[in-house]
């Protein structure tokens, strides 16, 4: 095996996507897919075994999600080069991934055109974020972010739960839930609960 190969680990819970990446990389003389993983826990294990040059990491996965896996891997190996693969452009999700230590961000609908270039760039030590994602990031740079509890409440709202049920699930009073909802609406600039869910999804605060 030549040392000039970029050794890649692909992490995604959809096998069809991993297969696609494998096919695409197989045709490249300077790249090699050395391992695959279908969730964050497997990703950490595979990383320890293979020490790949670049990791392609999906964010929404069962068991251990992408951001948690990035935090764990970068905690052990700060020099790990991780590229996030995702469907959404939300600023909050991007920020979370970048703070965790990701070096690149790729939207899944751009994969076929930009995957290879992005792998090469990040391997060479650069950071890469698509322009429209960067714009989104700048737009909300000064916004007040939601607290952990508020995000939890928003997630439960998106599941169609009423305040009473949310209170029961989180073991807090309905009045407290109302307070959280009020804060969520004002921080997101939302008109009502449905609007807040829409904005939350768009910005990657919560996932589908």
């Amino acid at each position: 095996m030549s040392t000039r190969h970029i050794r890649v680990l692909a992490v995604d819970d959809h096998s069809l996507l991993r297969d696609g990446i494998a096919k695409l990389l197989a045709a490249q003389p300077d790249m090699e897919l050395i391992a695959e993983a279908s969730n964050g826990r497997e990703a950490i294990e595979q990383f320890r075994i293979h020490k790949p040059d670049v990791i392609l990491m999906d964010l929404q996965m069962p068991e251990v999600n992408g951001v948690d896996a990035i935090v764990a891997i970068c905690g052990e190996f700060p020099r790990a080069r991780i590229i996030v693969l995702t469907t959404y452009t939300g600023d909050v999700q991007v920020l979370r991934a970048l703070k965790a230590g990701a070096r690149g961000y790729l939207l899944k609908n751009l994969l076929r055109k930009e995957l290879l270039d992005t792998i090469r760039l990040v391997h060479a030590g650069q950071k890469r974020i698509p322009p429209d994602v960067a714009t989104e990031l700048a737009e909300h740079a000064t916004d007040e972010s939601l607290s952990e509890r508020e995000i939890e409440v928003l997630r439960l709202i998106s599941g169609g739960n009423a305040n009473k049920e949310i209170g029961a699930r989180l073991s807090i009073t309905e009045e407290t839930v109302k307070g959280h909802v009020k804060n969520i609406l004002s921080k997101l600039g939302a008109n009502d609960r449905t609007h807040a869910v829409t904005l939350g999804l768009k910005r990657g605060i919560i996932e589908l």
């Binding site: 959809h14 069809l16 996507l17 696609g20 096919k23 994969l111």
Partner: peptide, 13 residues
């Protein structure tokens, strides 16, 4: 959606 995104890579290859 995820399957389509995967298939696109196959077609690209």
């Amino acid at each position: 959606l995820q399957s389509f995104q995967g298939l696109m890579l196959h077609f690209q290859a």
